Simulated assay, not measured.
Amino acid sequence: MKLLQALFFPPEQPGGVSSMIPYLQDRFNPPHWEMELFSLPKRIRSKGSDSVQFQTFDWHEFEESPIVQKYVQTYRDYLWWTKLRIKQPYDLIHAHHPIAGLAMKEVFPDIPVVQSIHSSYERELILNGRIQENGLEHRFLTSIYKELEHRTDKLFTVSHSFASYLAPYVGHPEAIGVIPNGFDEKRFKPVPHENEVAQLVTVCRLVPAKGLDILLKACEELKKRGLNYVLHIIGDGPSRLELEELAQQLGIYDETIFYGYTLHPEEFMPFFDIFVLPSRAEAFGSVFAEAALCCLALVGTDVGGISEQIENGTTGLLVPPEDSVALADALEKVIIDPDYRYQLARTGSDKAKTHYSLNRVVHELKQLYLQFK
Results as ranks from 00 to 15, higher is better:
127 L>S: 02
140 F>I: 13
23 Y>E: 12
50 D>I: 08
333 K>Q: 11
349 S>W: 14
336 I>C: 10
163 A>H: 04
64 E>M: 14
77 D>L: 07
21 I>H: 02
211 G>H: 09
297 A>I: 05
151 R>H: 10
330 A>D: 00
163 A>Y: 03
117 I>Y: 12
149 E>M: 06
2 K>I: 03
336 I>K: 10
262 T>H: 12
36 E>W: 07
353 K>W: 09
239 S>V: 05
124 E>G: 13
21 I>S: 00
284 F>V: 01
243 L>C: 02
245 E>Q: 09
193 H>K: 09
159 S>K: 10
189 K>G: 11
283 A>F: 13
125 L>D: 04
216 L>P: 02
137 E>F: 12
341 R>Q: 07
121 Y>V: 15
138 H>C: 06
271 F>G: 04
240 R>S: 05
203 V>D: 00
288 F>N: 05
90 Y>V: 05
354 T>D: 12
185 E>L: 15
53 Q>S: 13
298 L>D: 00
365 L>V: 03
122 E>P: 04
183 F>I: 09
159 S>A: 11
298 L>F: 07
146 K>M: 13
165 Y>C: 06
236 D>M: 08
130 R>I: 13
225 R>I: 05
347 T>Q: 11
214 I>L: 00
133 E>D: 04
62 F>R: 13
312 N>R: 07
373 K>S: 11
105 K>P: 00
306 I>K: 09
272 F>Q: 00
200 L>V: 00
369 Y>V: 01
299 V>E: 02
7 L>N: 08
208 P>G: 12
107 V>P: 04
199 Q>W: 06
346 R>P: 05
53 Q>I: 14
311 E>R: 10
184 D>V: 03
49 S>T: 14
302 D>A: 08
142 T>Q: 12
183 F>H: 06
213 D>H: 02
98 P>G: 01
194 E>V: 15
85 R>C: 07
89 P>Q: 14
37 L>T: 14
37 L>F: 07
194 E>M: 13
7 L>H: 11
279 S>M: 13
260 G>W: 11
152 T>R: 08
205 R>A: 02
56 T>G: 01
48 G>R: 09
154 K>G: 07
199 Q>Y: 05
248 Q>E: 12
226 G>K: 03
43 R>P: 04
102 L>G: 04
20 M>H: 14
70 K>Q: 15
46 S>E: 08
359 N>Y: 13
45 R>D: 14
305 G>H: 13
73 Q>L: 05
251 G>R: 09
333 K>W: 12
204 C>K: 11
185 E>Q: 15
190 P>F: 12
67 I>G: 10
106 E>L: 09
330 A>L: 01
28 F>P: 01
279 S>F: 12
29 N>M: 15
